[in-house]
Design a protein around this nucleic acid. Structure first.
Length: 312
DNA sequence: TTCCAGGACATTT
DNA sequence: AAATGTCATGGA
């Protein structure tokens, strides 16, 4: 049992590669599938079952390659520059751990689902699927705001424009790898720039507003992590962040398994299809339905989203 | 062409 | 308190 990243570091740091122990119920193919959803994704790149992702180590950019080396081990290698300090190694391990959700005890969710008529099949079909995280608070909030009330394809287009306009990139073998922009990289005239990229006026204002909150220090993942109830209230107090966005962020950034974006259109469609309903279920019906899954709402939603992708 | 999209907020009933 | 309107554009 791994007790700390310090232990992991001592036992797993060997030269040019990091080996991360994998928990029970982890499916790398599901990671690859999820991360391959969009052909215009700019925050990672996938080739030959390997994920390439640019990380920011306090201003130093390092490109990592993540692959599965065996049943119980994930391998991280450095394709170009290598980290030079233990702190950097630790940061990378923690990032990947958090990104892929390796700390979640999925078996508890499966215990809950094994005799559930609605979940039984779906958790078997996607066994080992974990919520892919968005560890950076600014990134998850921007992505959620972008995704409000537009189709995912267009959302990816907007995200790409946003990242390429405000973020930093790193070239390797003729390919560009991008970092999601920091809040500090946006200023007042960002609103105008975002409008030109076809963000709505409101979304442009929301994103710049969120950047201000983060820059001022009001909004900080570190400060919010210890009290998720308070974190939710703080998120909801920000313009542009409603219940769906707050819970989406709790689910993918804070890794709150009980986060529940109940108003999600995809969720509604998934339930309608799964239960053969003529109309989408009402919010009250969904609340009732989710009572037995208390504590794991985020995972139920994530699996239902996953199921949507295999229709037709 | 129509309808809807991984909502939030303002306005009206 | 609950329904309705508005944003604002692309994708199917």
């Amino acid at each position: 049992m791994i007790t700390s990243t310090e232990d992991m570091l001592a036992t797993n740091f060997k030269q040019d590669a990091i080996f991360l122990p994998l928990p029970e119920a982890f499916c790398f193919q599901e990671v690859l599938h999820y991360l391959s959803r969009s052909s215009i994704e700019v925050l990672h790149y996938i080739e030959c079952n390997k994920i390439y992702k640019l990380l920011d180590l306090n201003g130093d950019m390092i490109l990592i390659e993540v692959s599965q080396s065996n049943d119980s081990t994930l391998q991280i290698t450095f394709v170009d520059k290598k980290p030079t300090s233990k702190v950097d190694i630790q940061y990378i391990m923690q990032y990947v751990n958090d990104w892929l959700g390796l700390n979640t005890d999925l078996l508890r969710f499966y215990k809950l689902a094994e005799n559930d008529p609605l979940l039984k099949d779906i958790v078997q079909r996607y066994y080992g699927l974990r919520i892919i995280g968005i560890p950076d608070l600014f990134e998850v909030l921007c992505w959620a705001v972008i995704g409000q009330q537009i189709n995912l394809t267009f959302a990816y287009t907007l995200k790409r424009r946003f990242v390429e306009a405000f973020g930093k990139s790193y070239e390797w073998k003729g390919r560009s790898f991008w970092l999601f922009p920091k809040a500090s990289q946006l200023n007042e005239d960002a609103i105008e720039q975002l409008r030109k990229m076809q963000f709505t006026q409101k979304k442009a204002e929301y994103i710049v507003g969120i950047a201000e909150e983060i820059k001022s220090g009001n909004l900080s993942k570190k400060l919010m992590l210890h009290d998720l109830k308070k974190a939710e209230r703080q998120l909801l107090s920000i313009r542009g962040i409603g219940p769906w966005t707050a819970h989406y962020a709790m689910m993918r950034c804070f890794r709150d398994c009980s986060a529940f974006p109940i108003g999600d259109v995809g969720l509604h469609n998934a339930l309608k299809r799964l239960l053969n309903l003529k109309e989408k279920p009402t919010l009250k019906e969904i609340e009732q339905m989710f009572i037995p899954w208390s504590g794991w709402e985020a995972y139920v939603v994530f699996y239902l989203w996953r199921g949507l992708e295999d229709v037709e």
